[in-house]
Nucleic acid binder design. Sequence first.
RNA 1: GCUCCCGUAGCUCAGUUGGAUAGAGCGACCGCCUCCUAAGCGGUAGGUCGCAGGUUCGAUUCCUGCCGGGAGCACCA
Length: 582
Amino acid sequence: MSATDSLVPVQEALATKLQAAVADLVEVPPTPPVDRSKAGFASDFQTPLALQLKKQLGGNPRQIASTIVDKLGGDDMIAGLDIGGPGFIGVTLSDAYLQTHLAGMLASDRLGVPVLDDSTVVIDFSAPNVAKRMHIGHIRSTIIGDALRRLGTFLGQTIIADNHIGDWGTQFGRVIWAWKNWRDEEAFAADPIGELERLYVTFVRKEKEDASYTDRAKAELVKLQSGDAENNALWQMMIDTSRVAFESIYERLDIHFDVTHGESFYNDMLQPLVDELLADGTAQISEGAAVIFFKDEHGDDTLPPFLIRKSDGAALYATSDLATVRYRETEWSPTRCIYVTDTRQQNHFRQVFEVARRMGVDTRLDHVWFGMMTLPEGAFSTRDGNAPPLHEFLDEAEKRARDQQVKRLESLGETWPEEELDQLARIIGLGGVKYSDLSNNPQTNITFSFDKMLSLEGNTAVYLQYTSARTHSLSKKAASEGIAPPDGTTLKLALPQERDLMLQMLDFGKATRAAWEQGKPNLLATYLYELASKYHTFYQSCPVKTEADATLQMSRLNLNLLARKVLAQGLDLLGIDAPERM
RNA sequence: GCUCCCGUAGCUCAGUUGGAUAGAGCGACCGCCUCCUAAGCGGUAGGUCGCAGGUUCGAUUCCUGCCGGGAGCACCA
């Protein structure tokens, strides 16, 4: 794989040609927008360039379009041009051009998608809290963050996935006290993280009834923070225990991190940072605490005050985030850093980013936020212990997928090996969980329901996986009929369904780029869904086995192969596997 | 009270720097398996894109105001 096997994206190529065509007409040619033509139009792509130039040139936009069309003639990329409506230029690509791209994509390990620069991008996601089980509330950050990691890597950037786990803070006073007084060794041996969470939840319940528990927790916390050996050993044990539990979930979901620097990693940097911000006037003492204010020229607050040191001298989450930004910049020199958290932290990150700029950090800082997940009866939280644990949720997903597959095989009268059924249940169940998250714009709230999140109907992972399985099935069947395997170069477009499929596949690079750049994996998911839909239409109307025209038959085998490759690559970027048969 | 986010078909949601006729899935209805996997395909019905203004040749998209829902707002993370 190398950058040399990349293909110039269609829209880019067309935009360049259009720009050249209008170079004589205007001083500064605009970047022409080029979009796929909607169904019902004869052309493949359309541009409103002539309409946009009307302002500068005056006159009739259809006349301008006509001038542009004249200059574009005689090009081997373009087979036809037309002018429609008020002055839209429609472009139909030549079959030769499409053939070059089919062959180029098939020959390339990365489907001809050009790489971006290899600059470093840090992605901060998942970040569960120590001493608590991961539950369904952690799934969105984890899955979206991992998809972004895969997208960025595919596009050639150097990704550092950093799991900023919550391994410091007031909750440790509670769990340590509860551990010392209430622990159940047997339960801990059987389910370590479950027992730690039980201790935490029990403590919080007690604390609600009896305020004196707050002081007990505080006393343990002070001991921990002042270096008490026993408490520090307990704290370390809790981190280790938690990380083992997290790791088992990550492995199951095929999610990976490059570093896991928890909040405690930054402890030593916090007080010097606060002192520095106070010294250079960024922060000031207010009501005994160190605070940063955000004022506009009228002295009005543009953001709420940002507290970086409590009046008792303790640093905060905010302080730690600032130290983290600086650490990443000095250590890795990233060009971009992406934080994947829920919407509630929008203000927090605006504050962090603003202060970071004042600190001279010039890394591009992006907050990719997603909506809240709630239970039908309302919000959930670890404290209340009402959130379904993630591993149980995943179990249920796999079970449903397996049940459905078993039922289907029964109706088909087929028997598959148990081992394959297990693997399929895993691929479909976990794929469904990921896809239900990734296929939606992240920024909407979700009411959690097993039925909704684990549905296997409609726009779901199964549909895409089934499409992939169909491509395998088709080529296997063709081979068994003695038909020559795809040659990777032949393209003959006889029916509109073939052209639709090919044009869709041409757009793969654009979809991955948009998803990565905007931090919205759903843009890729939607693309893949459309691709799958077009493949099924192609499959329905373009037979291979019975096709008498050998060239057309070969062309269809090539389209089939490319569809599989694009689907497989796209699904992989979403962290989803595609089975060979199902 | 201030700030941010959301509001698109009965339900759940897409809609890629403003582009021609706003799209899917589920649900409803009508078709397609002697044919490469029917977890599929084709078709019908369903919309003043929350409301009112503004900018533009053109607005679901940008701006302003309002209505409805959610979230955040100094010593939690």
